[in-house]
């Protein structure tokens, strides 16, 4: 479903990713862990087309995300191509990024209506179902500023799902939340993960959560995969010293 081939990413002089290869199967749920600055967010942002690769290629569902064909040459993807591939991918951000000028319902329906051309009534019906699922059925007409962080993040999740993505990217979606609000969002994501056949790519520092939802854990350091394996293996008997050090640091935090 997702394939990185020798992906490199530089910001000016800073090389964040170097010849990164990995792939994720359809329906697979993968958690990325690793120290701050190791490039986890960058990977998700590349997939969401918020950043462009410096070198290498990314494929999503067999389609090249970073490049397109023009005649018999590979050229960097243009806006139209990006829109096409982006349809399959959704993302939930650490800071929610709800639209503060719209109520909850509108936040969820705006993209289906404007991007997919879904009739508004139909979009609203779907949005209400999603709101019920995220346990916010009564908040359709509330504004984001009237909601707690946990509620805002649940709306953001509903908003992403309204576009029916095949791949969902989660970047530390609970780290901006007050501790007592974390479990609500995690439980929701756990349900979503186990119900659907979403392909999930998740960055988190919550190891229990990672264990619950993922098939596979990738440990990153300095833009490279140091170790990968099942959650049991990585969390109970990591093979690499760097993984052990990292887990030690996280657990003691």
């Amino acid at each position: 479903m997702i394939r990185f081939d020798k992906v490199g990413k530089r910001f000016g002089d800073v090389t964040v990713l170097r010849e990164l290869d990995f792939h994720v199967e359809r329906g697979e749920r993968v958690t990325l862990i690793g120290p701050s600055g190791s490039g986890k967010t960058t990977i998700l942002r590349l997939l969401m087309t918020l950043e462009r690769v410096t070198s290498g290629t990314i494929h999503v569902d067999g389609q090249c995300l970073s490049h397109m064909r023009r005649g018999d040459r590979q050229v960097p993807a243009d806006e139209r191509h990006l829109r096409q591939v982006r349809k399959k991918i959704g993302m939930v951000f650490q800071q929610f990024n709800l639209f503060p000028n719209m109520n909850v319902l509108r936040n969820i329906t705006e993209a289906p209506v404007r991007a997919l051309g879904v009739p508004r009534e139909q979009a609203e019906e779907k949005a209400r179902e999603l709101l019920k699922m995220v346990d916010l059925a009564g908040k359709a007409h509330a504004h984001p500023s009237q909601l707690s962080g946990g509620q805002q993040q649940r709306v953001a999740i509903a908003r992403a799902l309204a576009m029916e993505p095949e791949v969902l990217l989660l970047d530390e979606v609970t780290s901006a939340l007050d501790p007592e609000l974390v479990s609500g969002v995690q439980n929701l994501l756990r349900d979503i993960a186990h119900q659907g056949n979403l392909t999930l790519l998740c960055v988190t520092h919550e190891m229990n959560f990672a264990r619950d939802i993922s098939h596979r854990v990738l440990m990153f350091d300095q833009g490279q995969i140091v170790e990968e394996g099942s959650p049991e293996q990585i969390f109970t008997e990591p093979a690499q010293q760097r993984t052990r050090d990292f887990l030690q640091a996280v657990l003691n935090a």
Binding site: K87, N101, R114
Partner: peptide
């Protein structure tokens, strides 16, 4: 307008025109 607003619009594949009209300009 915070960068996150643009990024959320991109992540939702909101067309550029509607990003301006619905999200950026009102704010």
């Amino acid at each position: 307008v915070p960068k996150g607003q643009w990024e959320a619009a991109i992540a939702l594949n909101l067309p550029r025109r509607w990003t301006w009209i619905g999200v950026i300009l009102p704010q």
